[in-house]
Design a protein around this nucleic acid. Structure first.
Length: 903
RNA sequence: GGGCGCGUAGCUCAGAUGGUUUAGAGCGCUUCCCUUACAAGGAAGAAGCCGGGGGUUCGAGUCCCUCCGCGCCCA
């Protein structure tokens, strides 16, 4: 049963198979809510390869799950894969060499992507070895795959131009690619021993999730929490989609102030063409500084602070824009910063988010120049009438913003409207977090869900929700509150993309063929999920699609967070399995990383607030990041990612979990391979200590009689209480640290002290006590380690138990304390102190530990000497001490006389 | 600029509500030991003005103030 030379190799595969077969992690349905511990596992994005960061945080959750399971809870621990959204689209584009063209009809026969050859095109820069068959788990430590490639999709590709495929075909490819990834992810998660109920998995694009997502949206719509509006929208020109506030990144970018002249020729405030003869007159001119001179044709006003004496006389008057010669008013608004540039700014539609504020609050017209592809529209705004202005605009038409900027600077320089050279500065520019071109702002019709960004009562209600959850660590709640406090708009959920959950609506077309936006056609709930681009609204037929008097489908999909925010509803069977939902929702635990509090955590609270008038979970545990040795966040885009597979092979899953468990909740942890070695050593030690303790005959019902044994059990009782409390409060790192430190002391001291006695050197009764205690302690230690190192503990448990350690009952401190009776921790402490002193003496004398001690003199207080008396036989045996003399004194010391070296 | 966190041995970190006399662990380093549980191991040792300064207290790494440095989130 117990191998001669126990090892760790092969334990993962062996026990994973057994656990699968015995189904010990399967959720036991039908339990009352109080007996259930439900976990809202955040579905990892499957579009990239797994790295050690995933192992890190998912292990933390698993430790808690395993502890709750051993504590008697029915643990509800499903797993999802987040596969909808842009990351997948980008990878599909690169991997298959395709791009989506929604205007194409579905091609049911061919799979264009597969046909055009996967491997050939993927050479661009995804060496997509990681996504084929063996999956990301087998991936090499590649850096920068999709993130870079995706953004370069159209230009610069030296390979073939992408093959255009229909939206349904494109989605098929997305599903194909993610399916193989998901398998690989599951394999890796099994390999590291996550005790997930693998019969309960979902993917955020599957039909269940689409249904929940659409149903929840329709409910939001019905209750007035979702609405659509035509408004200026942050827009990514690369992906050509709207993005939400939560997806913004500010990046410091170089730019340049251009000092431009607006003419204040109060006289010529009328007709446009000819009166530019006052070129040199300059008294009424106003100079503004701007980093975006190309937006002058979209300028609708100038604005300065109301208290700014320099410009106060000009408020209410007008000036004319350089070259384009458009008359614009000079206005006052408190958001204008007198310290910036010349203290007066031009308002364009739209250069940045402040422009939106001004435009809205000052009730200004819209003069759009940049199209959704980020290029200047062919036609100038109507308001530009002068020939010179139209000619100048023609030089910008079709150009990107950056190119137009260079062009217009040249124009202004020619006309003398640009003073001096542009002055380089660096300033924060808003980017889509996944994009690499600055965001533009375009006016478009979009769907929103209210989130308190425009409603103080709702804002406060959501902040209050934060206080109804337990945050681990507690200070993370501040981030939640800060984010809500800083919201400046509702949650934009529509995206102009393809691989996502469609917005389940259609619009009537009037006789002119224009959509009637106000009263969307809704599907019957029983037909969900629907795809409005394929399905028809109730009462219509396909022949009426896109025909005047007919209907048109909403072309957009929902933000990936609009689905991800529903994982509690998705996982617990909301509106599909009410019994399950009742016993699992609100959920007990949401583990996640701290950087997505603003997105995932917050949006999930919003949905539960609306749908169920509750918080979605009782506890949220925020895990830290893995940092590389230089303390930079480990991320694919940085190229410093550690892939887990190699580490798993050399150190084993338990060692990797050990490393993960050492990272305290919420704390960023530097990756340190040394920790893997330590974890592995601990696992090996557990094998060997178990083997040792079990080598003696089973003492049956023998009683624990010896003082030393009872004293050790007393300390073990304290450990059990301590670790139990730590795990209850999600402090797995503390629990592990305590258990580990006890365990090493246990092997160093207790095992050595009782070794001789266990072998029978002090008679049968004393031996039985030792053997019994060894077994009791071993059993408890195996259980305490089980949540952390499930494989090795299951292995050693199996040497002497029939069931799984993972469904055994968590140890009780009281039982151990009862065995200890009135014996305190002191005897084992005194014995260990003497033994340690003897070891030190031998080590300092450079003698082996088995060297005999002629005579050891222990000086200590009378009280402790009396205690030592009770354990003296064990101490003498362990230290190989021939004669042990005691002497009273206030200071503890041990004088060691070694026996002469034998020759 | 606002918020949050951090600064303890060469390195990575523990030190929960201030108090077991001379501040802990692991790694690394040095020395020793192939001991019948364990050599991909074991034992032992050296090593710290607990970021600086001020304060509260009988007593502070632990609380307060301030300064310096670092990181993150948000403007």
């Amino acid at each position: 049963m117990i191998p001669d030379k126990p090892g760790l190799e092969g334990l993962e595969a062996k026990w994973d198979a057994v656990w699968e077969e015995t189904a010990i992690y399967r959720f036991a349905e039908g339990q009352p809510r109080s007996e259930v511990f439900s976990i809202d596992t955040p579905p990892p994005t499957v579009s990239g390869s797994l790295h050690v960061g995933h192992v890190f945080s998912y292990t933390h959750t698993d430790i808690i799950a395993r502890h709750r399971r051993m504590s008697g809870k029915a643990v509800f621990y499903p797993m999802g894969w987040d596969d909808n959204g842009l990351p997948t689209e980008r990878r599909v584009q690169n991997y298959y060499g395709v791009s989506c063209d929604p205007s194409l009809p579905y091609d049911p026969g061919g799979n264009p992507g597969s046909a055009t050859g996967t491997e050939s095109d993927s050479t661009t820069d995804t060496k997509s070895g990681s996504v084929s068959g063996t999956g990301p788990a087998g991936g090499k430590p590649e850096k920068q795959t999709a993130s870079k490639a995706g953004s370069k999709q159209s230009s610069k590709s030296d390979a073939q131009p992408p093959v255009k495929v229909s939206r349904p075909n494109f989605i098929k490819l997305c599903e194909e690619l993610t399916a193989s990834d998901e398998q690989a992810f599951e394999q890796l998660f099994r390999h590291i021993g996550l005790s997930v109920d693998w019969t309960r998995t979902y993917t955020t694009i599957d039909s269940h999730c689409r249904r929940v997502s659409q149903l929840a949206f329709l409910e939001n719509l019905r209750r007035g929490e979702a609405y659509q509006i035509e408004a200026p929208t942050l827009w990514d020109v690369t992906f050509q989609t709207a993005v939400a506030q939560a997806e913004l990144d500010d990046r410091e970018k170089p730019g340049a102030y251009h000092k431009l002249r607006f003419r204040g020729d109060g006289l010529s405030s009328g007709n446009g063409d000819s009166d530019r003869d006052g070129l040199s007159s300059g008294d009424g001119d106003i100079w503004i500084d701007t980093t975006r001179p190309e937006l002058v044709p979209s300028c609708v006003a100038l604005v300065a602070h109301p208290d700014d004496a320099r410009y106060r006389p000009r408020f209410g008057s007008t000036v004319r824009s350089p070259v384009f010669d458009v008359e614009v008013p000079v206005l006052a608004h408190p958001a204008a910063d007198p310290e910036k540039g010349t203290g007066i700014a031009m308002i364009c539609t739209f250069g940045d988010t402040t422009d939106i504020t001004w435009w809205r609050e000052l009730n200004l017209p819209t003069r759009t120049v940049i199209d959704r592809d980020g290029r200047f529209a062919v036609e100038p705004p109507e308001v530009i009438k002068s020939q010179a202005g139209r000619a100048a605009y023609a030089r910008l038409a079709g150009k990107t913003a950056a190119a137009a900027r260079r062009e217009i600077a040249a124009v202004f320089a020619e006309t003398g409207d640009l003073e001096g050279e542009p002055r380089p500065i660096t300033h924060p520019v808003k980017f889509f977090e996944k994009g690499d071109k600055p965001l533009e702002i375009v006016a478009s019709r979009q769907w929103y869900i209210r989130n308190g960004g425009r409603d103080d009562a709702l804002r406060q209600a959501l902040i209050d929700r934060g206080t109804q959850m337990h945050w681990i660590p507690g200070y993370m709640r501040a981030r939640y509150e800060n984010w809500i406090a800083g919201l400046n708009g509702d949650w934009l959920i529509s995206r102009q993309r393809y691989f996502g959950v469609p917005i389940p609506l259609w619009y009537r077309l009037n006789e002119a063929g224009s959509p009637v936006w106000d009263d969307p056609l809704q599907p019957d709930a029983s037909t969900l999920p629907v795809d409005p681009s394929v399905d028809c609204p109730p009462g219509y037929s396909e022949t009426q699609r896109d025909r005047p008097g007919g209907f048109t489908g909403d072309p957009d999909v929902m933000d990936t967070w609009a689905t991800s925010s529903l994982t509690p509803q998705i996982a617990t069977g909301w509106r599909s399995d009410e019994a399950l939902h009742e016993s699992t929702f609100p959920m007990d635990l949401r583990p996640q990383a701290h950087d997505i509090i603003r997105t995932w955590l917050f949006s999930t609270v919003v949905r539960a607030h609306f749908d169920a008038d509750t918080v979605p979970w009782r506890n949220c545990a925020l895990s830290g990041w893995i940092l590389d040795p230089d303390r930079k966040k480990m991320a694919k885009s940085v190229g410093n990612v550690q892939v887990p597979t190699g580490l798993l092979e050399s150190y084993g899953a338990d060692a990797m979990r050990y490393w993960a468990a050492c990272g305290r909740p919420g704390t960023d942890t530097a990756f340190d391979e040394q920790q893997f070695r330590i974890g592995r050593r601990l696992a090996v030690k557990l094998l060997n200590a178990s083997k040792f303790a079990l080598r003696f005959d089973n003492p049956g019902e023998a009683e624990v009689t010896e003082i030393l044994d009872r004293s050790m059990l007393r300390r073990l009782a304290d450990l059990v209480d301590d670790t139990g409390a730590a795990l209850e409060s999600f402090d797995y790192a503390r629990a592990l640290e305590r258990t580990e430190s006890f365990f090493w002391a246990f092997t160093d001291d207790y095992l050595e002290l009782v070794k001789a006695r266990a072998y029978g050197e002090q008679g049968e009764a004393a031996s039985q006590s030792a053997r019994q205690t060894l077994r009791i302690a071993l059993e408890v230690l195996q259980q305490l380690f089980a949540p952390f190192m499930p494989f090795v503990t299951e292995e050693v448990w199996s040497w002497w138990h029939s069931g799984s350690v993972h469904v055994s009952a968590w140890p009780q401190g009281d039982r151990l304390r009862a065995l200890a009776g009135d014996v305190t921790a002191q005897p084992s402490e005194v014995a260990a102190a003497v033994l340690s002193a003897v070891r030190r003496a031998k080590s300092e004398a450079k003698r082996p530990l088995r060297a005999e001690v002629q005579c050891a003199t222990v000086t200590d207080t009378a009280e402790r000497l009396a205690v030592l008396q009770a354990v003296t036989d064990d101490v003498k045996a362990a230290g190989r001490i021939n004669e042990l003399i005691t002497a009273e004194g206030s200071e503890f010391s041990v004088k060691v006389e070694l026996a002469p070296e034998q020759t």
